[in-house]
Structure formats: C-alpha cells, structure tokens
Nucleic acid binder design. Structure first.
Lengths: 64, 64
DNA sequence: CGAGCTATGTATAAGTA
DNA sequence: TTACTTATACATAGCTC
C-alpha cells in the first residue's frame, strides 16, 4: 500500500506541497542528527534554518 | 571480517578514539544532510560545529 | 588519522486515509 | 495539510589495513 521509495536527485523540489512535506521531515532528521553529534562526540553544534517562507528553526548544544 | 553493527545509545562515547572516529563520520553525514535540505527545500541553512578539541567546521547555504 | 568493507540501524519518498 | 504506513535508500558501528 505504501513504501515505494525511489532515489531522488538533490535539486530543488518543484512541487510546493511535496517540498514542504520534505522540508518538515528532513528538518526534523537534521536537527536530531545535530543533537546526537553533540552528545555522542562532546562537540558544540549550532544550527540555524530558515524555511523558504522565512520561518526560523534553530538548535544549539550547550555545556553551560 | 566486518559489519557486525550494533545499535548505540545516544550518550557521550567514552573511548576517545571511537569518539573521534564517530565524530568524523557523523560530521560528514550531518553536513551532507544540511546541504541537501537547503537545496531540496530552497531553505537557508547555517551550521557550525566545534569538535571537542576546538576545531571548527561550518557550512552556510547561499543563494547569492 | 583516513580509507574501505559490510551488516544493520535509521531516515525517508511515496501512498493511503 | 497532517498523520500513519511501509518499502527501500542511505547512514553508520565495528573491523581491518
């Protein structure tokens, strides 16, 4: 019923809806990886993302 | 000879050598994902990482 | 430290609802 | 859209050089 994943080319996704869905999914994945890297490797990580519509998302590791 | 991968917990890797190797591998993966997100979704992304030893790595999307 | 290798874990492209 | 499902692409832990 689902799951026919194909490889995709790394270039701007034309379809707006698809692009937004992909943005949400990959953004979460990216932030998760960023946090994992900081924890696993005791590194400091700062990440800032602006969506195409200007919405801000950010992460910063902190050892206070 | 190789490939007996186990799942790992997300907490600081104690062994220094292992931590550094993981840092190198995951850092590359993270930067790759960051670039892909910026391209695929037309987003602006800024990423800065300091290794535990203070080495800097950074990426910034640019539509200039 | 970096460069393969490979088994596995994980992320995610498409579909469905 | 927003969530959930699932097949599959991709990332990567553990080794070996």
């Amino acid at each position: 019923m689902a799951g026919k994943r194909e490889r995709i080319a790394i270039r701007r996704i034309d379809n707006l809806a698809a692009r937004q869905v992909t943005f949400s999914k990959r953004r979460r994945g990216l932030f998760k990886k960023a946090e994992e890297l900081s924890i696993l490797c005791d590194a400091e990580v700062g990440l800032v993302v602006f969506s195409a519509t200007g919405k801000l998302f950010n992460f910063a590791s902190s050892r206070t």
